[in-house]
Write a protein that binds this DNA or RNA. Structure first.
Length: 204
DNA sequence: ATGGTCAACGTGCCGG
DNA sequence: CCGGCACGTTGACCAT
């Protein structure tokens, strides 16, 4: 009888790596449920069995073999691999098939792994950029809010000034006419003797 | 125990 | 139709 991990393994294999239950739809033929296999070294580091596969003379399909070996362990890319991928990403965020293959050969990875790494890397970049944008917008919003507050205060102060002959908002036009600002509607009003006021312009 | 990270996956969409 | 990509998701691994 296998141990508990092996039992879980069976479930993992049945459902695929992510335990994802596929919905109806097209399936990529060249994407096996398990296209890679890993095992743990005694220290707990993940070893990519694909590296062995490269040198292996085994003619049979390693996928089927791996399916019987157990649940795949998570690959951790080495520092060198990561930094080379990063450098490559700095040069171009997408790869053409030739570049992909070259990089895969160079790093001793499969093209699929390189492809997945770039997809995930682009997603991370986008996420980071979204976060940056969000912070920027937040700051802008705060600035506008502050400015709005300041302007409201300024307006309030202007309104508080008594509108009268001594007010700076009251201009004597002639002996009979004065230009003043209406305290309720913020419109410039020409006051004439005889009470026939003429609104001149809105300053709202 | 738990939350974060990340490789790997399934699916849908789009352009050639 | 096919390949490539974005997106959302999963689970192994790791730090705390």
């Amino acid at each position: 009888m296998e141990d508990a991990e092996e039992c879980i393994t069976g479930l993992c294999l049945g459902l695929g790596m992510g335990g994802y239950v596929p919905k109806k739809g097209k399936q990529k033929e060249n994407r096996p449920v398990l296209d890679l296999a890993f095992e743990l070294c005694p220290k707990g580091e993940a070893i990519n069995l694909n590296h062995d596969k490269v040198e292996s003379t085994d003619s049979d399909n390693s996928n089927t073999n791996n399916n019987n070996k157990g649940c795949r362990k998570k690959l951790r890319l080495s520092k060198d691999q990561s930094s080379m991928l990063e450098n490559s990403f700095k040069l171009h965020t997408t790869l053409n098939p030739v570049q992909k293959q070259a990089l895969a050969d160079q790093l001793n990875l499969t093209t699929r792994q390189v492809e997945v790494w770039f997809q995930n890397r682009r997603a991370r970049t986008k996420l980071k950029q979204t976060e940056v944008d969000r912070e920027w917008l937040k700051k802008q919003c705060q600035n506008l809010s502050d400015e709005n507050k300041r302007l409201k205060k300024e307006l309030q102060e202007l309104r508080a000034l008594k509108v009268g002959p001594s007010s700076p908002l009251c201009i004597q036009l002639s002996k009979t006419a004065t230009l003043t600002m209406c305290s309720s509607c913020d419109k410039l009003v020409k006051l004439n003797e005889g009470n026939n006021n003429i609104g001149l312009e809105g300053t709202n």
